[in-house]
């Protein structure tokens, strides 16, 4: 049985590595689709950090933050897909 705060710190480091890899894909990218998949991943990581914060501090308000971020992410995905389909296919 590990203390929750220690576990959260270790997992935070793991997620930071994932964050760095995702940011690299976002910068390199080559196409818009790649960059947006990376953005999707970034929001997933943001929710994960929220969960870790909730576990470390014991405040469930951080879970609400995760819910809000995931709602925004859904709208953003649909908006971007529409952009790619319109702008991407009309010459």
């Amino acid at each position: 049985m590990i203390a929750s705060s220690v576990l959260a710190a270790v997992l935070g480091i793991v997620l930071s590595v994932a964050l760095a890899l995702t940011a690299w894909r976002m910068v390199v990218g080559p196409t818009f689709a790649d960059r947006f998949v990376a953005l999707d991943m970034l929001t997933a990581l943001a929710v994960a950090f929220g969960v870790l914060a909730a576990v470390a501090t014991g405040r469930s308000a951080f879970l609400d933050v995760g819910l809000g971020i995931s709602i925004i992410n859904f709208v953003a995905t649909i908006a971007f897909a529409t952009f790619l389909e319109r702008r991407g296919t009309s010459e």
């Binding site: 196409t31 818009f32 689709a33 790649d34 947006f36 998949v37 999707d40 992410n73 859904f74 995905t77 649909i78 971007f80 897909a81 529409t82 952009f83 790619l84 389909e85 702008r87 991407g88 296919t89």
Partner: peptide, 14 residues
């Protein structure tokens, strides 16, 4: 989201 994004990526020539 995955389906919309995949289809849009296909149509835009990714």
């Amino acid at each position: 989201g995955a389906q919309l994004l995949g289809r849009a990526a296909y149509m835009s020539g990714a």
